[in-house]
Write a protein that binds this DNA or RNA. Sequence first.
DNA 1: GCCAGGATGTTA
DNA 2: AACATCCTGGCG
Length: 188
Amino acid sequence: MSRLRARFFERDPVTCARELIGCRLVWHGCVGRIVETEAYDAADDPACHTWVRPSARAFVASHQAGDAYVYLSFGNHWLFNILVKGPTAAGFVLLRALEPVAGHDLMRERRGAAVKDARLAAGPGCLGRALGMDRAAHGLGFLGREDCGIFQGEGVGICAGPRIGISLATELPWRFGDPGSASLSRRF
DNA sequence: GCCAGGATGTTA
DNA sequence: AACATCCTGGCG
């Protein structure tokens, strides 16, 4: 299985978001198959943080492709994005859902014993919680770390639809997923 | 099953 | 004031 390098993220966010479906995320003892992502474009996407946040624009300028962009949403949910930054485009890919592959015990500890395995990281907030995400991960170049990374997966059917939970640019079909997965945050 | 509402902290 | 969310409870 081949490890994704920063080069993978030196392309436009929509392409990256789509091609991440089916890949495996390794994160400090947890492994999950990426089954849902969203793309956010730094150039002209009103839903992207760069649209209204100088701090997000500064992040893009001062970090490298593949670095983690992590922030707190609604006061309790750490959302895990990956910086995409190439010659002609920049933005973020939000990781929205994983199918647990390994580290179930760790994830269950953080999410609660009652949560079904398939639902441990089924949603961006749940994913952050399951992985133990917090501000310490923000800005981290994790692709090359021993205990972290993303690895190529087998090809799967990928579908697209409108992004979830936003109020601007809702017409863009920039949510991607494996429609057969039981770990989607919502059905397509 | 579906929907409305509240918790909660950071940014601007 | 808004927000890239989640869980609960009320109602069919």
